[in-house]
Design a binder for these strands. Structure first.
Length: 311
RNA sequence: GGCGCGGUAGCGAAGUGGUCAAACGCAGUUGACUGUAAAUCAACCGGCAUACGCCUUCGGGGGUUCGAGUCCCUCCCGCGCCA
């Protein structure tokens, strides 16, 4: 396959900067199709609060199509099912292959850094599945104990961990899992693309404003009703899907323990904090070309960058 | 008008004579993160200083004390009860 045929355009950035709109724009101009890289939009039934922009969308052949542009990796699992990067990687890579085979430009678009990483860089240990038994067994152990266990299994790895990682139970459990299966590790998928990575950004206050506006819109668009439906369908608050921002915050409200107003405040704050975390992740990737959506000609600049790369 | 309770760092809230620049939570800042990633976790978080440290704080003012956020007096403000 020639280099030209192996293009992958990536659009990333924090929540609320307008990634989707740009993606659709570029898809139209460069004959592309979009693969969403969003860990919560994969869930069916989580529409309003995850910002799936489906107003003018049509469901066609098992996928959403907006303005003639297909968007894949939305609504791929039921809200009571777990979903992880490995599944994402598998499905998304297949999609990319298909799009390239159809001589179109795949556009990987989203705010989930790890998902993007799984496509662009691969994840070495991605073939090691979670060990539910182990997780259950070690659930009650302290962070210190887990660290000791890991140290015994793989001292070198343990010593590499920084303070943050050493205190992170979730991550420690995962590391123990990996250490235990080290010898039988399956080969990881590694693909090399001709990649252009675009990052969208805007000044802090502007981002905050955008987030506040979006939240207001989502409330108007019926987030409460959507959650009510999920609750009626017995989707538990503890599910991965319901841990999404804009959903989990409503738990105390539905239980009559918190006012609507407070829930919404909490929601906005969490949304903003999330955006900051996304930025922390993306900022350290030197391949990303950043565009400030508050500046005047950012779209033209983006188009120029893509054109230069495309030709 | 009387009695009672309370005013602590951006917010909430501990603290009752020294170990208090002041627990803890939230917010904030910076960051980590290769199968939960919209998750999970870390550091910092009065001012100045890289740091030893120095300086200014616990409603205002005045006292007691070697020493006060902590005790006394007084004033201001909020809440509750009685008038």
């Amino acid at each position: 396959m020639s280099n030209n045929k192996n293009r992958l355009l990536v659009i990333c950035g924090p929540t609320g900067v307008g990634k989707t709109a740009l993606g659709i724009d570029l898809a139209k101009k460069f004959d592309g199709e979009i693969i969403s890289a969003d860990s919560r939009q994969v869930y069916k039934g989580l529409d309003v609060g995850t910002g799936k922009d489906l107003e003018n969308a049509k469901w066609k052949d098992g996928n959403w199509v907006v303005g003639g542009v297909p968007i894949y990796m939305l609504d791929v699992v039921k809200p009571n099912e777990p979903f992880a990067v490995s599944q994402y990687q598998t499905f998304a890579l297949k999609r990319i292959d298909n799009i390239q085979l159809g001589n179109k430009l795949p556009i990987l678009l989203g705010g989930t850094g790890l998902y993007i990483k799984s496509i662009v860089d691969g994840i070495e240990t991605i073939g090691i599945p979670p060990n539910r038994k182990l997780r259950e067994q070690y659930k009650a152990k302290s962070v210190q104990e887990l660290f000791m266990i890991l140290s015994r299994l793989n001292p070198d790895l343990a010593n590499l961990l920084n303070k943050s990682e050493q205190s992170n139970k979730q991550r420690l459990l995962r590391r123990i899992e990996i250490a235990q299966t080290e010898t039988t590790r399956p080969k990881a998928t590694k693909r090399i693309f001709n990649t252009l990575m675009l990052g969208l950004i805007c000044p802090n206050q502007a981002l905050k404003d955008r987030i506040n506006e979006r939240v207001a819109t989502w409330i108007k668009d019926g987030i409460e009703k959507e959650i009510h439906t999920l609750v009626m369908e017995n989707i538990g608050w503890e599910t991965q899907a319901m841990s999404a921002i804009g959903y989990r915050q409503w738990k105390p409200y539905f239980e009559g323990k918190m006012s609507r107003e407070k829930v919404i405040d909490r929601w906005k704050t969490d949304e903003y904090q999330y955006a900051k975390r996304q930025l922390t992740w993306f900022k350290k990737d030197p391949r990303i070309k950043w565009f400030n959506v508050s500046s005047k000609h950012w779209k033209k600049e983006v188009e120029k960058t893509v054109t230069d790369w495309y030709n």
